[in-house]
């Protein structure tokens, strides 16, 4: 039994390598598939319910503040290929990364800045999302 395994393992290993190279989760094709034609996609550390990094948490909190709770989230800590691949994809060196309708919107700093200056409300509108902040009456 052991000998049979030994005999077949090199072939099997090569086959696995080929499959991995072809279907790498970090490839442009794979990430295209994750972000294109999707309204809102976040690549983050941890999950929206349990972020594992302050910057990722900030992005989720900002989206929640605008009433956005439905979005695709991908945990890069579970996938090293994806973690590097998404950085190459957007030519952006850090996680989290937010994509809207296939376009890279920004990381944490940019989301915070756009939240502060009101641009995020406009960006969400472009994606057909009405920010919940518009429904809060302004204090007089």
């Amino acid at each position: 039994m052991f000998r049979i395994l030994q005999r077949f393992s090199p072939v099997k290993r090569r086959a696995t390598t080929l499959i991995c190279a072809r279907y790498s989760t970090g490839s442009k094709e794979h990430i295209d598939g994750l972000v294109k034609e999707k309204n809102l996609v976040v690549f983050m550390k941890g999950t929206p319910d349990a972020p594992r990094c302050g910057f990722s948490n900030a992005v989720v909190q900002i989206l929640n503040m605008h009433g956005v709770e439905k979005f695709d989230a991908h945990n890069v800590l579970e996938d090293e290929d994806l973690r590097q691949g998404v950085k190459d994809y957007s030519n952006w060196p850090t996680i989290p990364q937010v994509y809207m309708q296939g376009e890279f919107l920004g990381g944490c700093d940019i989301m915070i800045e756009m939240h502060k200056n009101g641009e995020l409300i406009e960006e969400l509108k472009k994606a057909g999302i009405r920010s919940a902040l518009l429904d809060i009456p302004e204090e007089k």
Partner: peptide, 26 residues
Amino acid sequence: ALLQRHRLVNGILAEELKTIHAFSQK
């Protein structure tokens, strides 16, 4: 735009940012 500004900074520090894992900027 903000994204372009940040990209300029990222470009200058491209080599360093490979090992810096947390970088926030204004």
